[in-house]
Design a protein around this nucleic acid. Structure first.
Lengths: 199, 199
DNA sequence: AACCAAAAATACTATCCAGTATATTGCCTC
DNA sequence: GAGGCAATATACTGGATAGTATTTTTGGTT
């Protein structure tokens, strides 16, 4: 990629970041393209040279955010190294840390989904289901290995996701726990949840 | 309350229900007052005789939904009858069932909060924190009674709320579990989560 | 059945904003 | 430093919609 392209790409990123900040604060519908421009000290047509329309900004935000939220988590899930217990603990740790690090984006993903095209919505929901199923499969492996004790792995998987993704509603960096401390506590709770005896 | 007032009240309810349906399907900002009117076979000024403006509809929806979601749950939480274990199981059961029964409303509460006035937002968030704290207190009692084994009751409380409230994203009445079956499974998981040895 | 008040409809206004056509700036090349 | 092109701004348009002023309908009362 040459310099010109890189600069273009960088400007796109700046637009996305400014948009994410505003969508998080005011919501997608209440944010105008002029708002995004103003935040960047730039005018509307500037933005329209990088994105076809307002929805394209949100779409790209979803794509990137989903990718970034799950890419490392899925690596853990797809690796076959370590016991189910170790893998679950590591997965939750990464999952929690990503959720917190990208709090603004995970919040947008949960609050603005309705503004996507129905094609995109079903796309996202399918990917989410894939993840839920894979996590359920890991839990099942733990049950088969005698490490976990759960009657319904899919429900346990969904319960764990809820526990982790709910953090965006209440976690504050100014609170008493750092992201990694919280990750440890939620990992412990998740292991409890799947009936895993701990030290 | 005389008949006239009751009829007025009933019409208000019909408006709220129609609005909730549309807000759930299309989102608050994308729903027009004309849409709500059309859904009821009525015109805009009809709605404006019952609500001062569009935001007043959403506000009332939040007030009612919050109340209905938590009223029975808080009864369990405030009663001092039964062991922590029994009370937690009962609480989760009611909490899950309410979440599912009022799925549309709980979804709106999570997705449209930004459209409320900041006064209303802090009001809601305060009430939510009250609930979280009370649930944490119940868990603490369980720890003191030797029934639960949890190092951080507040985090456990938040984890449980996340697990329960996430249901609105994936539960379907057409799925394999009824609301009460799901309530049982999530109660079991919640008891695991707080380290409660089960039969 | 005629009157009147309340309920609801029709018809309108004013504003906001996504998206675009046109103009201007500024940078890169020779 | 002139010419030309790419990047960005100014200025505008059209459509949507919240909210309202005015008119019509309805239904209860005598």
């Amino acid at each position: 990629m040459n310099v010109k392209q890189q600069i273009k790409e960088y400007k796109r990123e700046l637009i996305l970041d400014a948009a994410a900040k505003l969508f998080y604060e005011k919501g997608f519908q209440k944010t105008t393209i002029d708002d995004i421009g103003a935040a960047l000290g730039v005018t509307k047509p500037f933005i329209y040279t990088y994105f076809e329309n307002k929805y394209a900004i949100l779409e790209q935000l979803f794509d990137q955010s989903f990718e970034e939220l799950y890419v490392d988590v899925l690596k853990v899930l797809n690796s076959k190294q370590g016991s189910p217990k170790d893998r679950l603990r590591q997965l939750i740790t990464v999952y929690v840390e990503k959720n917190i690090e990208r709090q603004r984006f995970t919040a947008i993903m949960l609050e603005e989904e309705k503004n996507l095209s129905s094609k995109k919505i079903s796309d996202i929901r399918r990917k989410q289901r894939d993840f839920d199923t894979k996590l359920a499969r890991l839990i099942e492996e733990g049950v088969e290995a005698g490490q976990f004790r759960v009657s319904d792995p899919m429900i346990a998987s969904l319960a764990i996701s809820g526990m982790v993704r709910w953090t965006h509603r209440w976690y504050s960096p100014q609170g008493r726990l750092s992201a990694s401390e919280l990750a440890t506590r939620l990992s412990d709770l998740a292991l409890n949840l799947v009936g895993c005896a701990q030290a």
